[in-house]
Design a protein around this nucleic acid. Structure first.
Length: 481
RNA sequence: CGCGGGGUAGAGCAGUGGCAGCUCGUCAGGCUCAUAACCUGAAAGUCGUUGGUUCGAGUCCAACCCCCGCAACCA
């Protein structure tokens, strides 16, 4: 990847249901990383892709359930995702929809490329087909040899599908990973990924059109449709010009991809195999965030009733607060329970008491003492060195995509400010001395604001304005527990 | 024996061989510029269990117990 260009893409959510808090985590983490790099490299050097995965059997079924035609159905859910982004200030550069005719065309280009390289072939496939489900069931899905949903014995059916020669890329990908030891984050996922890759078999990548009319047609074979995963994954390349603008593609390619733990196999193994087949360089990085668990520490599920809705959370606490908790209250790469009590504590302690309160102390005192602030040249050397050490560490953590740890460090910087102001007592000092102390603190605050700004873009813009205009405000009113 | 992660103060976590740490919460004191905020100090842990290696083990080895995720809608 061109060092000046930074390309990040989320996994496209599958639009057969409302977004849940886990999607919110991925979007908000991605947005934060992107915002950091926009600040660092300039807006024009960063590209952020999000979107929706809109094909496949499940969407076909769900649309029928809701009594909607396919297009209005996917439009409705895609709109919900866009609404979500707006609500949570997820500022994407491109919203990719796989139902877009342009995508259809270019996914076929990708298919053809793999085909030209000899990696696609036709094969008989036999399996247990459930008429009720209209799909093949795996042995593990069967309960007493019957479909768990329809309680019928599936029929043994054979169909001819296209297969992708994924097995061919086992060794090349393993070899690649030997050199790209930091490809996956967190590092402990690497063993799991290598295992997936070493066990890769050729996969079926098409379905009979008569079974699944909703999707992308296989090139030169109108009886077959692409399997949804094959079609959807190509978006990451197409989004930056694959098949349309080689120069643009070359400039941007090498994405940082974010995904959930259940997607490691697809993004880390299958997609990398597809890239290799199409003769493209591998992805740059795969960030696998943790699973957001229910308040009881177990997986969220409709049956248990511990589902958390990002829309409800936003209603209750506001977007910035929810962002703050998802980013700094939940470890970036570990599974963690979503606890509203923790959200409130985290917000009160770090934003209201530590950062917000310090901001007001400084503005209030500066006004009372009528002193100058925001003069970087006049910041005392030793104080500046201490702040800069924090700042360097914060930037290093962001660059290593460690949002949670960066948030912790920023909190420590604000904490240092509170200790400093208490020790120095500018309120009891004469004007020249008070000015020195408060100017030092304005320097510290600017860096706290800069540090938090990828996480809290709106609040930080307000905080900066308040500091510059010396207007006292309650940016973070305390929340009731 | 399907695969992976984890069990350390009330909660959440750090800590890969050398006197058990951090944040929140709790308690006491201080300060009073500030959003009843801030600062200082204290209490609180048989580091999942058992056994082993070692002068020394949260840290290494073995066995076992328990929790979570993936495999199967879903990030």
């Amino acid at each position: 990847m061109d060092k000046q260009k930074f390309y990040l893409t989320t996994t496209l959510p599958y639009v057969n249901a409302e977004l849940h808090i886990g999607h919110a985590l991925e979007f908000v983490q991605s947005d934060t990383i992107v915002r950091y790099f926009r600040n660092k490299l300039g807006k024009e050097n960063v590209f952020f892709n999000v979107g929706t995965d809109e094909h496949g059997q499940k969407i076909f079924n769900k649309a029928q359930e809701e009594g909607l035609e396919l297009k209005p159905f996917v439009d409705k859910y895609a709109q919900r995702v866009m609404d979500f982004c707006k609500l949570f200030n997820v500022e994407y550069d491109n919203f990719y929809r796989t139902s877009d005719p342009k995508h259809h065309e270019l996914a076929q280009v990708f298919w053809n490329k793999c085909n030209e390289n000899g990696d696609i072939y036709k094969k008989q496939y036999s399996g247990q087909y459930c008429v009720g489900c209209e799909r093949y069931l795996t042995d593990k899905e069967l309960v007493d040899g019957k479909c768990p949903d329809h309680h019928t014995v599936p029929e043994l059916k054979t169909e001819e599908n296209y297969f992708f020669r994924l097995s061919k890329y086992r060794d090349p990908l393993l070899k690649w990973l030997e050199e790209e030891k930091a490809f996956v984050k967190p590092a402990y996922k690497m063993d799991e990924l290598k295992k997936f890759i070493s066990e890769m078999e050729d996969i079926s990548i098409s379905r009979l059109r008569e079974n699944l009319p909703w999707g992308i047609e296989v090139p030169n074979d109108p009886t077959q449709m692409m399997y949804v995963w094959f079609d959807a994954l190509t978006n990451y390349a197409i989004a930056v010009g694959y098949g349309t603008d080689e120069e643009r593609f070359r400039q941007w390619w090498g994405p940082v991809q974010t995904c959930g733990p259940d997607n490691l196999r697809f993004q880390g193994a299958i997609w990398q195999g597809m890239l290799a087949s199409a003769g493209l360089p591998q992805s740059e990085k795969l960030l696998v965030h943790g699973m957001v668990l229910g308040v009881d520490g177990t997986k969220m599920s409709k049956l248990v009733g511990n589902i958390v809705s990002p829309f409800e959370q936003e209603q209750k606490y506001g977007a910035e607060t929810v962002r703050f908790y998802l980013l700094t209250g939940i470890p970036t790469y570990d599974d963690a329970a979503y606890k509203e009590d923790d959200l409130v504590n985290e917000y009160n302690s770090r934003l209201a008491n530590n950062f917000g309160n310090l901001l007001n102390r400084v503005i209030h005192l500066a006004n009372a003492k009528e002193v100058e602030m925001n003069n970087e040249v006049a910041v005392e050397g030793e104080f500046k060195a201490t702040v800069d050490t924090y700042v360097n560490e914060i930037n290093r953590l962001y660059e290593d995509y460690e949002i949670y740890l960066a948030g912790e460090k920023i909190d420590q910087l604000a904490d240092y400010g509170n200790k400093y102001i208490t020790t120095e007592e500018p309120w009891s000092k004469e004007k020249p001395e008070a000015q020195k102390i408060l100017n030092n603190l304005s320097y510290l605050l600017k860096h706290v604001i800069a540090g938090y700004s990828p996480i809290l873009p709106i609040s930080c813009a307000k905080a900066l304005e308040a500091l510059e205009k010396r207007e006292k405000l309650i940016l973070f009113p305390k929340l009731e527990a």
